[in-house]
Write a protein that binds this DNA or RNA. Structure first.
Length: 827
RNA sequence: GCCGGGGUGGCGGAAUUGGUAGACGCGCCGGACUCAAAAUCCGGUUUGGGUGACCAAGUGAGGGUUCGAUUCCCUCCCCCGGCACCA
């Protein structure tokens, strides 16, 4: 711990930070205006759930955002950086029951506390634009949007399976199911099929996939995760005719080239045909029911054994006419393709395992490109190749064979594209969420609430018991009249998934106070977001839903752009002792305590210095103290070198030799920091370069007037370069240096090309790839002269026998490598 | 299982296009200041050898390409992330 030392150091972060924050607030510098003619730049960090306290992950996320925002503001752009709160969700209901308050009061209290914390960290938000998603003036437009989607056929209602807690009489989210039991009641969770609302995201699957190619500012990792999630595969649907005259069974396959290798068909336990068979066949019924239990968590299935039962039915092979048995199999899922597959055990691992287990035939129909045919022991080959033993397909390559199959089967097959992506179930049977604006009328069926009757306000004086949603029994909410016929009807009591609110908030920040419509022309001014910053945990769901909503809003005519976020930065986790900070591990560091003890600037500096933003960051108390030490050194230099500073115009020609070197390093630092912050977003290396320059400046002893002007210029520049990262202390130092106006509004430094020019450069000299020394040469010195000087330098020439030199490699400005034969080469 | 990212001093990390490996910070060691300590400042700090200038080895392991490899290729080991009976 660093203790206070009032004599040698009077850096007082508490005082400086509230002083600087007051000045920024009074000058209203963070308010963004559409009338600003400068190029606009929209920086957005993922808004938090209002839990009541910021955690270190937030601090890291929002520091990155603020650094980028402040950098662009100094670059002369019109910067929008808003903030809000993702305020619906289950924690508020739980807290309300525990603390005997209402979810609304709990949420609003938390928001007030978190805003104070955000302000104390010096983040420059345009608070006029604050969005709180649980307020009706926000969610009314989301309700409107949903009714529009319903009219366009993009929202619909369908039965779907959910986790049901029989004691609490409520639906559970996957994360509320622990070891197959309800997290609160401890009762075994059941699978239930209930009516749910869905949004047809699959209608945009193709565009959501192809749009990723244009997102050059997104990490490849995130794009790949989205591609996998959408899971496009093109294949062929084939109809197999049942031998019992019961119609056809349609299968989806990506490997129609192996059609002659099919030895059985397999159906998902949920397949409609299986439902019929269950009634007659006890064995099938028992099997299907045992499968129902496995459903709770897909990821937990892991290496489950493939099981199945024969149905006793057969289909006819569409080309050979052979009879193929139909099985019900555990590894076939109803939600993908057609819920039925043609099994080719010779060329598919799962089909193979299943065939082995139940003694079904295995028939190879693919020969290797190398001509190696399988010889009994090696019967599984999943790669494509040349088709054999397949009648008219024999001799064709796999792609050729697939084409041919389509021709041969005629109307019994068709090329189709299948997606893993499923429609988004947006219904939640919970209280603290946005009401789904629908009415159930006994006569007219489902009717959307009229736009002029929106919002459907969530009642806020309710009794919560942690069991079922109070909306179900609240007559004043539920009983209404049908918007269509005017007769008594019932409101929908489901609320939206909270991902619904976070899917469009980024757009609403532009039109935050528009009372007439969801968006207005200001959305076109600011969108798309120039830079979005948030955790990798949202790589798929949130970012996919937001991209989907952007396209919906575009197709409704509110936006012109195709994608919401031009550039995306996924920041890494904050770790302590190698593990994610969590209450259960007891390794949580509270940002509040850090700000209290070290100040916001130190917290920001440490966060940005300890690791590059995408990487996980190991919390280190000693690292934090190092950050504080650096700020103090900077503070002291500015305050104690007054006598060595002179104001004036710098004359580079008048600098001392050491002065020229420092001048050059200053401008190299500007140029590198600009690249690191603006392009590479490696804030850690930018800080390292500023630190290196600060060290050089501290050692510098000015020898003349020009040198002293340089010291002043160097200090001034340092304060500019560091401002995005440590805004408070630099704002104060700017004032101490006699700066006019706010540093936050000053232009970003530009490197002087004269300083970057070099007459002489150090050339590394290698012999056989091994460094043997270096040589100072003129920048334009020719190779012949360099060779002569290498040979003339005794420290270098002792490694070189001139008669044995085989080759000279010269990389201009970098290195000379002399390749010498005769001796043993190493390296 | 498949896909992706990574493995560099005691620690966090740097090396931007194949061209000086270890920037910057932490820690540690030594010194200055001090009655003493803290703070601060100065010096050192990859490993091995040498008083030293220097020499040798060295970026998970092994091989390859190259004048030259942390960087590119192949095989293997380990860690992290994502996806998954997806036909």
């Amino acid at each position: 711990m660093i203790t206070e030392d009032r004599l040698s150091d009077c850096y007082d972060p508490g005082k400086i930070e509230s002083w600087a924050q007051t000045r920024w607030r009074e000058a209203r510098i963070f308010e963004a205006h559409e009338s600003d003619p400068r190029p606009s730049y929209y920086v957005l960090s993922m808004f938090p759930y209002p839990s009541g306290r910021l955690h270190m992950g937030h601090v890291r996320n929002y520091t990155i955002g603020d650094v980028i925002a402040r950098y662009h503001r100094m670059r002369g752009e019109s910067v929008l950086q808003p903030m809000g709160f993702d305020a619906f969700g289950l924690p508020a209901e739980n807290a309300a029951i525990q603390n005997q308050t209402s979810p609304r009061d709990w949420t609003e209290t938390n928001i007030a506390a978190m805003k104070l914390q955000l302000d104390r960290l010096g983040f420059g938000y345009d608070w006029r634009r604050e969005i709180v998603t649980c307020r009706p003036d926000y969610y009314r437009f989301e309700q409107w949007l949903f009714t529009e989607l319903y009219r366009k056929g993009l929202a619909y209602r369908e039965r779907a399976w959910v986790n049901w807690d029989p004691v609490d009489q409520t639906v559970l989210a996957n994360e509320q199911v622990i070891d197959g039991r309800g997290w609160r009641s401890g009762a075994p969770v059941e699978r239930r099929e209930i009516e749910q609302w869905f949004v047809r995201i699959t209608a945009y699957a193709e565009e959501l996939l192809s749009g990723l190619d244009g997102l050059t500012g997104w990490p490849e990792e995130v794009k790949r995760m989205q591609r996998n999630w959408i899971g496009r595969s093109s294949g062929i649907e084939i109809d197999f005719e049942r031998l019992d005259g019961g119609g056809t069974i349609r299968v989806f396959t990506t490997r129609a080239d192996t059609l002659y290798g099919v030895t059985y068909l397999a159906l998902a336990p949920e397949h409609p045909i299986v439902r019929d068979l269950m009634e007659r066949d006890l064995e099938i019924q028992t099997f299907v029911e045992s499968m129902r239990q496995r459903e709770t968590r897909e990821a937990a299935l892991e290496t489950q054994e493939k099981k199945g039962v024969p149905t006793g039915l057969c289909v006819r092979h569409p080309l050979t006419g052979e009879a193929l048995p139909i099985w019900v199999a555990s590894f076939v899922v109803m939600t993908y393709g057609t819920g039925a597959i043609m099994a080719v055990p010779a060329h598919d691992l799962r089909d193979h395992e299943f065939a082995k287990r139940y003694g079904l035939p295995i028939r190879p129909v693919i020969r290797g490109a190398l001509g190696e045919s399988s010889d009994g022991s090696e019967t599984l080959r999943t790669e494509e190749g040349i088709v054999v033993d397949s009648g008219p397909l024999s001799g064709l390559s796999s792609p050729e064979a697939r084409e041919r199959v389509l021709e041969l089967l005629g109307d019994r097959a068709r090329a189709v594209v299948s997606y893993r992506l499923r429609d988004w179930g947006v219904s939640r049977q919970r209280y603290w969420g946005c009401p789904i604006p629908m009415v159930h009328c006994p006569d007219c069926g489902i009717v959307p609430v009229r736009a002029e009757d929106l919002p459907v306000v969530l009642p806020e004086t309710v009794r919560l018991n942690g069991v079922q949603s109070p909306l179900i029994t609240l007559d004043s909410f539920r009983k209404t009249t049908c918007p269509h016929c005017g007769r008594p009807a019932l409101r929908e009591t489901d609320t939206f998934d909270t991902f619904f609110e976070s899917s469009w908030y980024y757009a609403r920040f532009a039109s935050y106070d528009c009372a007439e419509a969801i968006l207005d022309e200001r959305a076109r001014h600011w969108l798309p977001v120039s830079q979005y910053i948030g955790g990798i945990e949202h790589a798929v769901l949130h970012l996919l839903y937001a991209r989907f909503f952007h396209k919906l809003l575009r197709d409704l005519g509110w936006l012109d752009s195709d994608e919401p976020f031009m550039r995306l930065l996924s920041q890494g986790m904050v770790l302590k002792d190698g593990a994610k900070m969590s209450k259960s591990k007891g390794n949580v560091v509270d940002p509040e305590a850090i700000i209290e003890h070290y100040g916001a600037d130190t917290a920001r500096l440490f966060m940005m210095f300890a690791a590059p933003p995408e990487q996980s960051l190991e919390w280190s108390e000693q690292g934090v103290e190092g950050a504080l030490r650096f700020i103090r050194r900077l503070w002291r230099q500015v305050h104690e070198r007054g006598a060595e500073c002179e104001t004036g115009v710098l004359d580079p020609a008048a600098l001392s030799q050491a002065g020229v070197a420092l001048w050059r390093q200053l401008h190299e630092t500007i140029s590198q920091v600009d690249t690191d912050v603006g392009i590479r977003q490696t804030f850690n290396t930018a800080i390292a370069k500023v630190m290196a320059f600060t060290n050089a400046l501290a050692r510098f002893k000015p020898q003349n007037h020009a040198d002293r002007v340089l010291v002043k210029e160097a200090l001034t520049t340092l304060v500019h370069l560091l401002h995005p990262i440590v805004p408070h202390v630099t704002e104060s130092l700017w004032e101490s240096l006699g700066g006019q106006g706010l540093l936050a509004l000053r232009p970003w430094p530009v490197a002087d090309p004269r300083a970057l020019e070099r007459e002489e450069i150090e050339l590394v000299i290698q012999v056989n790839g091994r460094r043997r020394g270096s040589l100072w040469v003129r920048a334009d010195e020719d190779e012949r002269s360099i060779r002569a000087r290498v040979l003339a330098d005794p420290a270098l020439s002792r490694f070189i026998d001139p008669s044995q030199v085989e080759r000279w490699v010269l990389v201009p400005g970098r290195v000379v490598n002399v390749v010498v034969g005769g001796e043993r080469r190493s390296g």
